[in-house]
Design a protein around this nucleic acid. Structure first.
Length: 376
RNA sequence: GGUGGGGUGGCCGAGUGGCUAAUGGCAGCAGACUGUAAAUCUGCCGAGCUAACGCUCUACGUAGGUUCGAAUCCUACCCCCACCA
């Protein structure tokens, strides 16, 4: 049920098929983020038509609203949202980082002051697993302690060690909940900030608690320079279980996917596609486009002539600009849709190249074109 | 015709003697965004010169006046709105 078939490799790049209760995921793959049970702004059918094979939801946010009891009563996240394909839920570990000013950490867990109503919400490793079990995604994530990219060795070590201790508790609780069921698997997250020694210790400590059906790399793209992220991936890559999918959490931008795939990553997720889309920024093969710019006022052509998404197939840049300037919701949706497709397609293109043994030339050509121009 | 209110930068709208090139908002211009506290946030936004500090000019309906100093006070005129005839 939770198999991963690594079918092709090309250098460090990999292509495979991940089998999950709600279907399979062909990798490399980008997962659109649907924090609150919806890929923001998009209809599930639209998300499906982008080629997305799996999306994610968030434990902390769905716990606050509508509450896992509601989701469970309504048949679980899949039935509740009507998304039929695989899903993954993040544990709330990222909120330990992003809501830093609204939480306090103890060994027992994290007390959040709800950003919605100020109420106190306690998330422990056990609680995070219980919520995720109730939500019922195909994959649940470990509740971890994410530290900022610029953290000191000591601080990164603290977060990494705590994540390891919490991992054991998560695993134990998930085993109790699942009790032999094949409904949901559970993935650990490697931490350790930007420090090689910590990353390796995190990896060792994680693998020692295995076996696992997948491995995630967390705590990247949280403020550290890109070369540092690449270095960490290179340090971990050869040591990660070869026959298990590797999920680089929270990454990334188009170039990050290509660089990540080149370093052996199989699965990605990132909010930038939808957030940047809502903010008027679109990725294209000729660089970033700020759709609001006056240069698009009369532009009859598509956002990206190279793109096969529904937005680019149908609408002009001028119309998209008009929608943004006029505050029409459709504009936000159409750019989100395009950006999601752009990232999903990178996975598809990379996969095709890997299958044919031409990943490296494809990568160089892609990077060359993408970084060539802005706002072309 | 009478009475009252009002005319401020592309628009709306504060400001009732100096701290005012003039609060805000909108529009405009540019930037940011990576396991979503985000349809959000930041900067610029009269003209000219300057890398910048800054300098010069023009500006609060029009024309005069008072004052060391006026968008703010006075006079006349023009225009707009409301009510009454």
């Amino acid at each position: 049920m939770f198999d991963f078939d690594l079918t092709h490799t090309d250098g460090d790049a990999r292509a495979g098929t991940l089998h999950l209760p709600h279907g399979k995921v062909q990798t490399p793959a980008f997962m659109p983020v649907g924090t609150l049970g919806a890929v923001r702004g998009l209809h599930p059918a639209e998300v499906e038509r982008t080629g997305a094979q799996i999306i994610l939801g968030n434990t902390y946010h769905l716990h606050l609203r509508p509450g896992e009891d509601v989701v469970q009563a309504l048949g679980g996240l899949h039935r509740f949202t009507t998304w039929r394909k695989p899903m993954l839920t993040d544990s709330g570990g990222f909120q330990v980082f992003s809501l830093e000013t609204l939480r306090t950490i103890t060994e027992a867990g994290v007390e959040f002051t709800s950003h919605v109503d100020g109420s106190r919400r306690f998330l422990s490793p056990e609680k995070a697993m219980e919520i995720q079990w109730a939500l019922g995604a195909d994959i649940a994530m470990a509740f971890d302690h994410v530290v900022p990219g610029g953290s000191t060795h000591a601080h990164a070590e603290e977060g990494m060690e705590r994540s390891l201790r919490w991992l054991a508790r998560c695993r134990a609780r998930h085993a109790e909940l699942a009790a032999g069921s094949e409904a949901q698997t559970f993935w650990p997250i490697i931490q350790g900030g930007t420090y090689a020694d910590l990353r390796l210790r995190s990896l060792e400590g994680t693998l020692a608690q295995g076996p696992w059906t997948g491995t995630a790399i967390g705590g990247l793209s949280v403020g550290e320079p890109k070369p540092v992220m690449h270095r960490v991936l290179e340090e971990l890559g050869p040591r990660l279980p070869r026959d298990r999918p590797r999920y680089l959490m929270g990454v990334g931008f188009p170039e990050d996917l290509v660089e990540g795939i080149a370093r052996g990553v199989d699965v990605f997720d990132c909010v930038a596609a939808t957030r940047n889309g809502r903010h008027g920024s679109a990725w294209t093969m000729s660089g970033r486009v700020n759709i609001r710019k006056a240069t698009n006022r009369m532009a009859a052509g598509p956002l990206d002539p190279d793109c096969d998404c529904e937005t680019c197939q149908r609408f002009s840049r001028a119309y998209l600009r008009h929608l943004f300037v006029a505050d029409e919701i459709l504009g936000l949706r159409l750019l989100s849709l395009h950006n999601v497709r752009f990232l999903v397609r990178i996975g598809e293109l990379a996969r095709a190249a890997i299958l044919e043994g031409r990943f490296t030339p494809w990568r160089h050509e892609w990077v060359g074109r993408y970084t060539q121009g802005d706002d072309a």
